[in-house]
Design a protein around this nucleic acid. Structure first.
Lengths: 232, 232
DNA sequence: ACAAAAGTGTTCAGATTACACCCATGG
DNA sequence: CCATGGGTGTAATCTGAACACTTTTGT
């Protein structure tokens, strides 16, 4: 930055942070990754995972950086939620935060790293009180994925690469918070033509076993361009 | 702020701006309000209307402030679009911008004020090159209202208080960029039960005249709570 | 043989689409 | 009297919702 002229010296500067609402899905429940603060202010309080944005760092990159620092993951689905810009949101100093939400495969993160950072998964119904406006961020992120699930096949980011249709249904049930009819669900989801049936079964949840599928990203992108509707 | 302790002094501060993508609708065309910069840097270039966020000002309030400064309008529909946070987006200095989009009634703004600020309306298809990433903001805002029109009756913010159904249809056609069948459009829009038919006609576009309607905000909010679908 | 989850089809109601003519009026 | 935009109905199709039984297999 130093090579550029600063035309704006009479204006106010402030801190810019980014906070990540990190969702996972496990055993039928939607989960949230939060951690216990070890630095001032608010030591010991539960918080979303976030960081200040550095002056030589894109906001998106800052979000990717913290996600990687805590979970070891890269290249996962992450999207901006909205900004939180009230003057009084942080008692420390004027700081605005650009919240993001991420969907990760709960089997794939680096458990050692997560533990070392004092982070832990909470069932979405049992999230404790978080610092600042972080509970509001979680609420807004939940509303967002509920809506988003209507037109993007959001679930596949949260499931392992190979998954069964009953698993996918349980995920949608967790997001929508209501039970779905398995016949209609299966019919709808298969009609989208974005699932590839494999010759393997998952036998962990039933004696009979359920066929595994994987997501057909190629077909999916083709359909997106045609303006497809993924409503379940 | 000064009464609070600043815990974060080792972190980077930056400028935070907000830019408004201001839409209007006139004679069948969606329009954009932009203005010609009179200050350094980039004097004379076309730009969205924006401002730095002051340290004692909410981001939303900053957006409202600039909208009022330029158009004289208050209380119009305005919503956050997204943040633009790349390090190199502003050559002046590190500055992130929270873009907003607003929908205003093109007959109601303060024309004197707009002229005095060097602002002008451009047809959405004829927007000139704008400074920084402002063309991208416009594109993103257009995509947003296209999607938003599917589940919120967005059009009413852009039309005068009293409007005709053909007017409303032309607005939707401008947003979707395709022609709609007038019988189906009328059927659908009336079935939503959010229009109040008035005993007046608008005769400016036909000899016969078209009945004027107004939007039934009360009924609309009731329907929203029930989770209504406004797809046209 | 039985418990427990996986898998499968049909019917009905409501919504969406396509489509063509008469109406009212000012000039 | 005619040109112009406003206003109306119906049939065909598609989509979403409701609903119950058979299959598989480990124990």
């Amino acid at each position: 930055m130093s090579k550029e002229k600063d035309f704006y010296t009479q204006e106010d500067k402030m801190y810019v942070a980014t906070d990540c609402v990190i969702f996972g899905f496990d055993e039928g429940n939607l989960k949230l990754l939060i951690f216990k603060r070890r630095v001032k202010p608010l030591v010991g309080a539960w918080s979303l995972i976030g960081s200040f944005v550095r002056i030589d760092e894109d906001v998106q990159d800052a979000a990717k950086r913290v996600l990687k620092e805590i979970t070891g993951l890269e290249g996962v689905f992450m999207e901006e939620l909205k900004s939180y810009g009230k003057t009084d949101r942080d008692p420390g100093y004027r700081c605005i935060s650009i919240a993001q939400y991420a969907l990760i495969r709960i089997g794939e993160y680096d458990k050692e790293l997560v533990k070392r950072h004092g982070a832990d998964w909470y069932d979405i119904d049992e999230v404790p009180e978080l610092v600042l406006d972080h509970n509001q961020m979680v609420k807004d992120a939940l509303d967002r994925i509920k809506r988003k699930a209507r037109y993007k096949p959001i679930g596949f980011e949260l499931l392992p690469e190979k998954f069964t249709i009953p698993q996918l249904q349980r995920l949608y049930e967790a997001v929508y918070r209501k039970e779905l009819d398995s016949r209609n669900f299966r019919k709808k989801v298969l009609s989208l033509n974005v699932l590839i049936k494999l010759n393997e079964k998952d036998k962990t949840t039933s004696r009979r076993g359920a066929f595994l599928y994987k997501f057909d990203y190629k077909n999916y992108h083709k359909l997106l361009e045609e303006g497809f509707n993924f409503e379940i």
